Every structure is written in C-alpha cells, then in structure tokens.
Simulated assay, not measured.
Amino acid sequence: MKSVTMSVRVPEDDAAFIAGLDVPGAVTPSDKLRAIIAEARLRQEGSGDFRRALALSEQLLRPARQRLRDVEHRLQVHSDLVAAVEDWLPEALATAMTGPIHHDATGADDDDSQSLLDLEREFADRVFGLLEAVLRLGVTRQCRCYDPKTIARRLEPIMELARVIETMRDSDEK
C-alpha cells in the first residue's frame, strides 16, 4: 500500500500524550498515529477477525485494568468477582464487534439467519460462562472479594429464580 506523507500540528499536551502513549509495537509518534488510525478504522468498519477485535478490546481496557491493579496492590486487596468480569469483558466486546456483517436494506443474505444464531450462541456461551464463574464464588459463605459477603447477599434471588425455573420445567415434563 502506498504511503502518503501528512503534516499535522497538535497542541503540546496532545504531543506529550502521544509520546507517552503505550501502544504495543509502536515506538515513534508516526507508529503510534498509525496504530490509532488502525484502531479507529476497526471500530468504524468492524472486523470479522476475533483476534484483532480482542486485542483492541484488551487495549481499550488496559489503562483501567492497570489502575485497578495499582490500587489493589497499594491496598493489598483483590476481588475474584472483579477479576472474572475483567477477564470476561474483552471477549464479550470482541464477540459483539465480530458479529454478523450488516448489509444494506437490499442486501439480505441467506447466511444472516445462521449468523444471528451463531452470535446468540456465542453470547449465551459467554454470559453463562460468566454466570457459572460468579456462582462458583458463592460456594463458600465468604468469597475473595473486597467485601467477602458480596456474592452471598445476592445469591438468594438467583436461587429463587432457579427453583421457579426448575418447578416450571418439572411441570412441563408431566
């Protein structure tokens, strides 16, 4: 692909921001600007490439995750719940970013129905995976969370829903 030279004036604070920006594989301001453009293009156009979407999701969340790790380290605390959600979130976001390709109003595709079914299955797998991980935290009355009773306090409504679902399914089978 042919490169085009561009000259851009930016305020000093933006230049300092770009210089201090941590972009994997990018060292120079030009490298970083190309990475920023690639990221913006991926967000704008979407991508069927899960790996690229996952890398972008992780990159978007990296500063917040690092600040959280710094605070946890300083306070000597950890939350398995927060960690589980943080691990889940980039994959869920990447799944949304790589979902079915949207066609214009006249470009309906026979594959769209299957794409939607696949997307729904992927989201169900991810959501129920997170749900299972969170429920595992409720095995003991106190979990490794900032507040050890965080999960225990919220389990009863979930268990009640599960009992209602089980009762309904039992009656449907009869």
Rank of each mutant, 00 (worst) to 15 (best):
S171R: 14
I36Q: 04
T5S: 14
T28Y: 02
L60F: 13
P24A: 10
A26G: 06
Q114Y: 10
V85K: 05
L68H: 07
S7Q: 09
R163E: 15
D70I: 06
A19L: 06
R43A: 11
R41A: 07
S3F: 15
A38W: 03
I18L: 05
A16H: 08
R154F: 11
D49Y: 01
A83F: 07
G99E: 00
D109E: 13
V71F: 01
L137H: 04
R52V: 09
F17E: 08
I101E: 11
G48F: 01
E45A: 12
E91D: 12
E12T: 12
V139F: 12
Q66S: 10
A96N: 05
A152L: 07
P148M: 05
G99F: 05
S115L: 07
R62G: 08
A35K: 04
D110M: 12
T28N: 04
G46N: 02
L68Y: 07
E72M: 06
G138H: 02
M168S: 14
D147L: 01
T95A: 09
D13A: 13
A124Q: 14
R67Q: 12
S113K: 15
A96G: 08
L137E: 00
L116E: 07
Q66I: 13
H78I: 05
G107R: 03
M97T: 06
A38D: 00
D109F: 10
E39W: 14
L131C: 11
D147V: 07
K2N: 13
W88C: 03
R34P: 02
D22Y: 13
L33H: 02
R65A: 09
R62V: 07
L33V: 10
A92S: 09
V23R: 04
E45R: 14
L93Y: 09
R74T: 14
R144E: 09
R169K: 11
H102M: 15
E120D: 12
V27K: 11
E156Q: 12
Q44D: 14
A108G: 14
G46P: 03
A83P: 03
L54M: 06
V134L: 01
A15N: 03
L117S: 11
Q66P: 07
L54G: 00
A84F: 04
I165C: 13
A133L: 05
D125W: 08
L135I: 08
K2P: 11
L137G: 00
S115W: 07
R69G: 08
P11K: 09
D22N: 15
G20I: 04
V8E: 04
R52C: 07
G107I: 01
I165A: 12
K149F: 15
A108S: 13
V4Y: 10
G138W: 02
V139K: 10
G107D: 00
P29D: 00
L75C: 07
Q114R: 12
A152C: 08
L81V: 06
V139Y: 10
L81Q: 05
V134P: 00
D118F: 07
P63Q: 01
P11H: 07
L130Y: 01
E160K: 15
Y146S: 02
L33R: 00
A96T: 06
Q44K: 14
R9F: 05
L155T: 07
D104R: 06
L42V: 02
A92D: 03
A94Y: 02
G107T: 04
